[in-house]
């Protein structure tokens, strides 16, 4: 460590990025509250993605120019690691909500628990999970629930396999087999896309044939909250891996210097682990 830590000069991307995030958020609010602003929101999101593209392009260029030393590499590792930890906590809140509802809220509405007063609200309510009959008549529950052993199982196989193929791609990269790495990475991305397609089919089924909707009481709420945010993360992960695919093909990565790839892989494995939790606690149990 001899003063080689790279401190970037001024950059316009962060400030433009916060402006773009602001535009996106305000127009999202306008869309939700007043029903106008959808177009601006799309533009805002495009602006966010563009800024990210340009910002990361600067980072890639600096890295390719050899401006980064081993210490900088560690900064990126800590940064990505803690970012994933923050994502873990984001999902922890949602899982916490699911457990709280299943273990406490729904049984209490049926009179369980030391206090038992919540049962006075809807005396006829009977607790069950999945909750098919929400306490109030005004909310109609799902008609049927999805079997975990059909589409969700297929998706589990897709994601677990994709973690394996990604690891093979990584090993190939470490051994210097660029084409092999490329092929396995393509396979990984395709598995991710398959996952998303199947999830799309599942959502369609849920809405149109099973009566599982966002408005179908707490079962639909937790179902779409957990699977929806997970799906969004699969999408982000697949986009990131696609960028890494481009970089593999451009020859950006050395055998022992490819943290961009590793970071994307960490993220993908994290998304995979979340899915295992989902499969067990949302679908099976």
């Amino acid at each position: 460590m001899s003063g080689s830590y790279y401190v970037p000069p001024q950059s316009k991307w962060p400030a433009l990025g916060s402006l773009a995030v602001g535009v996106m958020m305000v127009s999202l609010g306008m869309q939700l509250v007043h029903g106008i602003g959808g177009l601006v929101m799309t533009l805002g999101m495009a602006a966010v993605l563009t800024v990210m593209w340009l910002w990361f392009r600067d980072v890639v260029r600096e890295s390719r120019q050899g401006l980064y030393d081993a210490q900088m590499d560690r900064s990126f590792r800590w940064g990505m690691g803690w970012f994933i930890f923050s994502e873990v906590m984001f999902f922890a809140a949602f899982f916490g909500a699911l457990f709280y509802v299943r273990v406490f809220a729904v049984p209490w509405l049926d009179g369980e628990g030391a206090k038992g007063v919540a049962a006075l609200l809807w005396p006829d309510f009977t607790a069950s999970w999945p909750l098919m009959n929400p306490p109030s008549e005004s909310i109609s529950g799902p008609r049927e629930v999805l079997s975990p052993w059909q589409l969700p199982l297929v998706n589990t196989i897709f994601l677990v396999t994709s973690s394996v193929t990604l690891t093979i791609a990584h090993e190939a990269l470490k051994e210097g087999y660029r084409n092999t790495a490329r092929n396995w990475l393509i396979g990984t991305i395709l598995l991710g896309v398959c996952f998303l397609v199947v999830q799309g089919i599942e959502y369609y089924e849920a809405y149109h044939h099973y009566g599982i909707t966002l408005q179908a009481g707490i079962y639909g709420s937790t179902f779409f909250l957990l699977t929806g945010f997970h799906g969004a993360h699969v999408t982000i992960g697949a986009i990131t891996l696609s960028v890494m695919l481009m970089r593999v093909m451009k020859g950006h990565f050395d055998r022992d210097d490819h943290f961009g790839f590793e970071a994307a892989a960490w993220y993908w494995h994290f998304v995979d682990v979340v899915w295992i939790g989902l499969f067990i606690f949302v679908y099976v149990l």
């Binding site: 906590m89 909500a97 509405l109 306490p135 909310i139």
Partner: peptide, 27 residues
């Protein structure tokens, strides 16, 4: 992130009719 999670659930309850904090729907 936990704060982000809870306000996201609020956003859904307000705008999309979910029942996280609504006992009538089992929340």
């Amino acid at each position: 992130p936990v704060l982000a999670g809870v306000i996201t659930m609020m956003l859904l309850d307000i705008n999309f009719g979910t029942s996280f904090f609504n006992a009538a729907g089992g929340g």
